[in-house]
Computed example of a mutant assay.
Amino acid sequence: MMNPKPESVDQYFSWFTGEVRQRLELIRELLQREIPEATEVVSYSMPALKTTEVLVYYAVAKKHIGFYPTNSGVSEFKKELESYQTSKGAIQFPHDKPLPLGLIAEIAKFRFLEVQAKPGKKKKT
């Protein structure tokens, strides 16, 4: 596959099987349960959850699932993420370790509250 662009989250998921697919489904179900107000979208060719802006993205890599809660989502949980490879706005959850579902939920909820607290963007009428 040469960097395909999925048209939907379901299409993205269809490209994976077995344990990797199960891990994606776990993240998807968790995010939908924790933030039912958000909509699933594809952004930057990755599944993402969005309200007024994208809260988190996630994607499969060769040896991990990348979770992208923006810079604030990583910096706010710096201590809890010490055992994971992180960068400015990304966290790597290795395929050979259990997903930290509680931590993923906390980060996603933090991003939801952070975005909700921003002043609303008013549309011109």
Rank of each mutant, 00 (worst) to 15 (best):
F77E: 14
L49V: 06
T52C: 11
E29A: 12
A61Y: 11
V42K: 04
T39M: 06
V74G: 06
E76N: 11
K78V: 10
K62S: 12
E29K: 13
I65Y: 04
Y57F: 14
K78L: 15
V42D: 08
V56W: 00
P69I: 03
E40C: 01
N71G: 14
V60I: 03
K62M: 07
T39N: 13
K62T: 15
E29F: 01
N71K: 14
Y58T: 03
Q32N: 12
V56D: 10
T70Y: 02
P69V: 01
P36F: 04
S75Q: 13
M46D: 12
Y68A: 00
F77G: 10
P36L: 08
V41T: 12
S75F: 02
V54T: 13
E29R: 11
Q32G: 08
E76T: 15
F77A: 07
T52D: 15
L30Y: 02
V41A: 02
A38E: 10
M46W: 01
V56L: 04
Y68M: 07
L55F: 03
V56I: 12
K63N: 14
R33H: 14
S45A: 11
G66E: 13
I35V: 14
V56C: 10
L55P: 11
A48H: 02
V56Y: 01
E53N: 05
Y68G: 02
Y57A: 05
Y44C: 04
H64F: 09
I35T: 08
P47D: 06
R33Y: 11
L55C: 06
T39Q: 13
Y44V: 13
L55D: 11
N71Q: 15
S45K: 08
K50R: 07
S72Q: 15
I35W: 01
I35C: 12
S72T: 12
V54Q: 09
A59C: 10
A59L: 02
V54F: 04
E29V: 13
T51Q: 09
G66H: 07
V56G: 08
P36T: 01
E40W: 00
V41E: 15
N71P: 07
Q32I: 13
P69N: 05
L31A: 11
K63P: 12
G73W: 05
G66C: 10
L30K: 08
E37P: 00
I35H: 01
M46R: 03
V60D: 14
E37S: 12
E34N: 09
V60F: 02
Y58C: 10
V74S: 05
L49C: 06
R33A: 15
F77K: 04
P36A: 09
A48D: 11
E29C: 05
V42M: 09
H64R: 05
N71W: 03
I65S: 07
I35S: 01
A48Q: 03
V41D: 15
E34P: 00
